Computed example of a mutant assay.
Amino acid sequence: MKQPLAYVHPAAKIAPSVVIDPFVTIDQNVEIGEGTRIGSNVTIMEGARIGKNCTIFPGAVIGAVPQDLKYKGEDTTAIIGDNTTIREFVTVNRGTAAKGKTVVGNNCLIMAYCHVAHDCVVGDNVIMSNAVQLAGEVQVDNYAVIGGGALVHQFCHIGPHVMLQGGALVNKDIPPFVKAGREPIAYAGVNSIGLRRRNFTNEQISEIQEIYRYLYLSGMNFSDAIDRIEAELPATKERDEIILFVRNAKRGIIRGYV
């Protein structure tokens, strides 16, 4: 259902059940899935791919060209998954030649005034509170919760089930299952409350806490701690996920609180 005061390019692929409010602009090379609602004054630009049953609130801009001087007009996309809510004045830029796409996953809540820059990959069930700013090529994994006003440096990686303090300045990778905060950014414990809400057992949480005792409380450097974890703790999905994350952290992981 399209209001007569909205502009929809005739080449856009819009499912019949999509609701489009007045003063919306939808460009060519756009696809929008069934059951999605586009609020007034939303601008959806070339390369946007929006899934099913999403809600885009007034003033959001999806698919604008990257704020990156290296961008030369290449054909790229900005992808929003199913059942995701994009609140007022959120901006999601499309990708560059680096990755070709910017992705926000399924079942996410992206609150007002957030920015998702070029080539970011945001996983499923992520919550970004008001005014979170992701620089280019940031990765945010499933079930991460990012507090309002956090600023995330380009190329950083935020692991799954992380709880990040509002206003944080993130310039290192944040490993899975932890809380992070303070200034400068530091490890602040395991996100045990969030893990329990997602049906992690007490045994799993205890194992994760033990791993982070090796990493942050043993006095060893991260490389030695990872070797000890691998040698001394039983192999589990969570153990191996943490080991792989730390070993692959291109920016290094956040430090413990001193």
Rank of each mutant, 00 (worst) to 15 (best):
N53S: 15
G63R: 00
C54G: 15
A135L: 11
R247G: 06
K172G: 01
G47Q: 10
E88I: 10
G167Y: 11
A150D: 12
F155A: 04
I38R: 02
Q3Y: 13
F89G: 00
H153V: 04
Y257S: 09
T102C: 02
N130Y: 11
I14R: 06
A97S: 14
M1G: 15
G194I: 10
R196H: 10
G189R: 02
G194F: 10
P234C: 03
P58D: 12
A180Y: 01
S223H: 13
I226K: 02
G35F: 04
A150Y: 12
R196C: 05
F89D: 09
Q139A: 11
R196A: 09
A249K: 03
I205H: 08
M45K: 13
D82N: 15
H118W: 08
N171A: 09
K179P: 01
L164V: 11
C114V: 00
L69H: 09
I80F: 01
G167Q: 13
K237A: 09
N93P: 00
Y71R: 06
Y187G: 01
D21I: 00
I80C: 03
K70V: 09
G73T: 10
N142Q: 12
I205V: 10
R228F: 04
R228S: 13
S218Q: 01
N171M: 08
A78F: 01
G181L: 08
T201S: 15
K52N: 15
E203F: 04
F177H: 07
N29M: 08
C120A: 03
A150N: 11
P184N: 06
P184L: 07
T77Y: 13
A168I: 06
P176E: 03
F200S: 14
V24I: 06
I254T: 03
Q154H: 14
I14N: 13
P176C: 05
G33Q: 05
A64I: 01
A117M: 07
V30P: 02
Y187T: 06
A249V: 04
L195R: 06
H161L: 12
V18P: 10
V170C: 10
I229K: 01
G147K: 01
L244A: 14
E31P: 08
L69P: 00
R228P: 05
A180V: 09
V42P: 00
F245Q: 03
A6C: 11
V61A: 12
A225C: 05
V30K: 01
A231Y: 06
R196G: 10
A188H: 09
E46S: 15
V145L: 12
T102I: 00
L5W: 08
I20C: 09
E238G: 00
L134T: 13
P160M: 13
N93W: 02
I174V: 15
N93T: 05
L215F: 03
I79R: 13
N106W: 01
K13Y: 02
I14M: 13
